[in-house]
């Protein structure tokens, strides 16, 4: 007789809606953290006077130009930060994202740990308390640090307390998808940030911007340790896209994404995950098949766009496979759709 392992039945009963909400809870939390990182790096560009278009770039990489135009006529630190932090009518603001995260968490409250729920409540209460005061230039960095720390606390509590069944895998899928997507946006911000007149690619100003991107990704020290004498656009892009040891790189996020999908397929017998795994492997293969230098030459921005479209495709495939028809039509409380920014 072989030993009978824990029956699959209990594990296989995850409601489709729960899976969807777990994924979005993770995505929104990850998105908030990365938005704080984007604001932080943009603030650095502006403060150091290394950019010609400053706050414009963050609006562009989030494809929010149209929405922002209806929100404010001037682009400056205050208007952009308010737009991305406390504007309730902007679905991509941190306050809206926190609300969406909490509403998804509320829906899966039967599954998540009380400690996760308590932290999320304290976090959303903090976010709701933010006023335009916090958008003052001299407080932005501290604000971003606080938001990042809150998100990381949430992530830590999740890692330490969330029961590791399929719900957890969907959480990991959501986090990985969003992290990969946001990593491409952080890289892309360099594309959208115009160097001030006279500064050349590879010039000290250019390098200082790449350094700021690395710092925003929390990768500066690891990068220095790895490549102490070689900070160039190519090496930074390579690090953020292709390094398998850096937790916030695109390749690490894709690897985690494939792992979680594989766990669903093999541990829980969910065969519909198979073609999605193949698709993720396909993206990884294309990323592995070229050097950072080649990507830069062929067009960094175009490549980032392509990765984002592929990730969107993976999201759609997951929705079709695990929460088809009615369940997928579930509207968000605020009336906004749960979509990539």
């Amino acid at each position: 007789m072989t030993t009978v392992s824990t029956p699959l039945r209990a594990g296989n009963d995850l409601l489709s809606r729960y899976a969807e909400c777990m994924l979005w809870l993770a995505r929104y939390m990850e998105r908030i953290e990365n938005l704080a990182r984007l604001i932080d790096v943009t603030e650095t560009f502006v403060r150091t006077g290394s950019t010609a278009n400053g706050w414009q770039s963050i609006i562009e990489i989030n494809a929010d130009s149209e929405r922002f135009a209806s929100y404010s006529t001037t682009i400056n630190a205050e208007s952009v930060i308010n737009f991305y932090v406390s504007a309730r009518d902007n679905p991509n603001s941190i306050v809206s994202l926190a609300h969406a995260a909490r509403e998804n968490a509320r829906a899966v409250r039967p599954l998540i740990s009380t400690e996760m729920w308590v932290q999320l409540n304290m976090f959303t209460n903090f976010i709701r308390s933010l006023s335009p005061e916090h958008a003052r230039q001299n407080q932005i960095s501290a604000l971003c640090a606080r938001i990042k720390r809150e998100c990381q606390t949430q992530a830590g509590i999740t890692d330490g307390t969330l029961y590791r069944d399929q719900a957890w895998h969907f959480h990991m899928i959501g986090r990985s998808l969003e992290r990969a997507d946001q990593a491409t946006r952080l890289i892309d911000i360099k594309y959208h940030t115009l160097l001030r007149p006279g500064a050349m690619v590879g010039s000290p100003v250019d390098i200082s911007q790449w350094t700021a991107v690395l710092r925003a990704a929390a990768g500066y020290h690891a990068f220095r340790r790895l490549l102490p004498r070689d900070l160039t656009p190519g090496t930074v892009v390579g690090f953020l896209l292709k390094n398998d040891s850096f937790p916030r790189s695109v390749s690490t996020a894709l690897r985690q994404l494939a792992l979680s999908l594989s766990a669903l397929r093999t541990d829980y017998g969910l065969r519909q995950a198979a073609p999605i795994i193949e698709r993720v492997h396909g993206v990884r293969a294309i990323l592995d098949g070229q050097t950072a230098q080649q990507i830069l030459i062929r067009g960094l921005h175009e490549f980032m766009d392509w990765v984002q479209v592929e990730l969107q495709g993976v999201q759609t495939d997951i929705a079709t496979a695990f929460w088809p028809h009615e369940a997928a039509a579930a509207p968000l409380p605020t009336g906004q759709s749960q979509s990539q920014s």
């Binding site: 296989n12 995850l14 409601l15 489709s16 809606r17 669903l264 017998g269 969910l270 009615e326």
Partner: peptide, 18 residues
């Protein structure tokens, strides 16, 4: 919720990922 349940052949089922 109601949208998680479906009735087929006079039996009630819930929609799961499996």
């Amino acid at each position: 919720e109601g949208r998680d349940l479906v009735v087929q052949n006079d039996r009630v089922f819930m929609r799961t990922i499996g």
